[in-house]
Simulated scan of single mutants.
Amino acid sequence: MEENIVCGRNAVTELIKSGNPVNKVLIKNEKGQGRNSDILHLLKARGIPYQFVENTVLDKYTAGEKHQGVVAFAAAKEYAEPSDILEIARQRGEDPFILVLDEIEDPHNLGALLRTADAAGVHGVIIPKRRSAALTPAVGRTSAGAVEYVPVARVSNLVQTLKYLKEEGCWVSGAEAGGKDIYQAELKGPRVVVIGGEDKGLGRLIRETCDEIISLPMYGRISSLNASVAGSIIMYEVRRQRNQT
């Protein structure tokens, strides 16, 4: 699994226009961006993340190749749509089981969660376009190949996506301290599990959109678990309850 690097204004422009998935674009930080105005317009229109960086950062990624101040990172795998994930569940005759990740920025955590998602029978994973790890080689390695089997949707607005999933009949369970013990919660039926970022947990609007908050019981002095560990335990509790039906 490789993340393709595309450099040069024309090449990056054509990549964006092609509709192929792009993780992010780096643009040389300079006064005014007149010569990059067309690219910036396309990036904003397509909702592709971009960042202004120093020229030395661009040089690091292009190994001496001329980049003209613009470098794009094309996704190693095409992203799905939330509707695609629901369709997979329908085709299997199963209630949807979806994992939503709210700003999981560590690629190793994302990879580990994808690996467990595949093992636990999750139909797909949804991540935000900003402030989140994307499908990079590091994610592929950590997932032990699961990234090739678990559909991943990348959306601009997680709150709107959760509302859409609720309209489609899913119950949304957000994982955070202080909620209902997962071993006492009813986790059967069409289910979306939301795992928050490594440091700050669920965002306020995400939390308010959830139908319920569930928590892992903690008996020691440490008050929280790594996001990928907590998410894995919750996914398997959902699977355990499903297997009882």
Rank of each mutant, 00 (worst) to 15 (best):
V150E: 03
V147E: 15
G169L: 02
V125C: 10
Y149L: 14
D95M: 12
T161M: 05
L135I: 14
P137T: 15
A144P: 02
R115V: 03
E168W: 12
C170G: 00
A112N: 03
T136P: 00
L165T: 06
E167V: 12
A153R: 01
I98D: 02
G140P: 01
A138Y: 02
H123W: 07
R115M: 06
V152C: 10
A134R: 10
E105D: 03
Y149E: 09
L113D: 00
A177H: 10
L135Q: 08
I104F: 06
H108K: 13
I126R: 04
E176H: 12
G124L: 15
P128F: 12
W171C: 09
H123Y: 10
Y149Q: 13
A119R: 13
I127E: 00
A177D: 04
A120S: 13
N157G: 07
V159N: 06
G124I: 15
S156D: 14
N157R: 13
G169Q: 03
G93P: 05
H108Q: 15
D102W: 00
D95T: 12
V155L: 05
P128L: 01
T136N: 11
R154K: 14
A117Q: 05
V172L: 14
P107S: 06
A144F: 06
T161P: 04
I127K: 01
A134E: 09
H123K: 08
Y149G: 00
N157A: 09
R154S: 12
A153N: 08
I126P: 02
G169H: 06
D95G: 05
E105C: 12
V139N: 04
P151E: 01
G111H: 01
S132M: 07
I126C: 05
V152H: 00
E168C: 12
L99C: 06
A119F: 07
I127A: 02
P137E: 15
I126W: 05
R115N: 09
V100Q: 08
L101K: 08
T116E: 02
R141D: 09
V152K: 01
D102C: 11
K163G: 02
N157W: 09
V125S: 07
Q160R: 15
N157T: 08
D106Y: 11
Y164P: 00
G111P: 04
A134F: 09
R131S: 14
P137V: 14
R130L: 13
D106M: 01
L101I: 10
A175T: 15
W171K: 15
R131L: 13
D95H: 13
R141A: 14
K163Y: 04
R154H: 04
P128A: 13
A138G: 01
I127N: 00
